[in-house]
Amino acid sequence: MTAPLKDITPAERARSTSFYEASARTRLDLLLDAGSFVEFIGPEQREVSPHLKIFDLPEQFDDGIVVGRGRLDGAPVFVAAQEGRFMGGAFGEVHGAKLTGLLRAARQVASIPVLILFDTGGVRLQEANAGELAIAEIMRAVMEARAAGVKIIGLIGGRSGCYGGGGLIAGCCSALAVSEPGRIAVSGPEVIETNRGVEEFDSRDRALVWRTMGGKHRRLLGAADVFVDDNVQDFREAALELLGLVGPFGLDSLKAEQERLADRLRRYGACFDAVDIWTAEGIAHAETVPELPADQFIALADRIGRTSRDAR
């Protein structure tokens, strides 16, 4: 952190701040209207994990997630931001329960949307049962809130990506915005390699990781609705855009999603690599997609035109 610069606007500061590099608190600070954030159960409450001491591991006062309310262009929002550097942003008992409580409130209020800034490796190993169950409760709470009319937007672009149960929660959201480093998957590269061998997935092949799980591929598939450059202002604008686009949720959304995913399997089920899928989408020189600058990529993705809108 640097000393506050008085002569630049919040938007300029947000534009020049990498979402990937920023902490959860900085992301919220710059994403929301200046000074509007109010935290629920902040670090001074010291609600740390009750389980890490069993493993003689250090705790964090907020257990790696910041939840609260704020304003986005003047309108109230509930927000949750995971800190991907603390235990990989993984879900533990306290960490998960903070998000569950926020979603249950959103369901009751029904009119205030929720932004979830994912940054997670999935379940926290040292409290695996509690973390797994927290994710199940969050998924249930997301769906109950959406059924009550709440819009839930996931923003994905952190260091730890959005893996494991985090990927499933993301799949439950109304819409997602993703940046290039925002990987979304269930099994991480190392997990696949450990279980299936390096021939199945070479986790050290970073180009393979990015094109299989990274934001560009997810955007081209239509798994994410908006692709943004890696800065907090772009995520803010994407959140505002998505809040304006998300329609109501109901049985029709799930039927449309069934068709969307079945169609994806029919089209690309035999593809071996992301480049094969992109080529099948009609992208010339698909192998150059990973190098495309954000603006050119966004134009390409918009031309391909796949989204999950009203089908998730």
Binding site: M139, R140, M143, E144, A147, G167, L168, I169, A170, G171, C172, I184, A185, V186, S187, V191, I192, N195, R196, E200, F201, T212, M213, H217, R218, L221, A223, L251, L254, E257, Q258, L261, R264, L265, Y268, G269, C271, F272, D273, A274, I277, S308, R312
Partner: peptide, 25 residues
């Protein structure tokens, strides 16, 4: 979950989430 390149390439997180969502709905 099936741990494979193909399943992740095709968006396994969406398929698993979809199944859970349908059951919850």
């Amino acid at each position: 979950q099936r741990m494979s390149k193909r399943d992740e390439l095709l968006g396994l997180n969406e398929f698993l989430a979809h199944l859970a969502k349908v059951l919850i709905h």
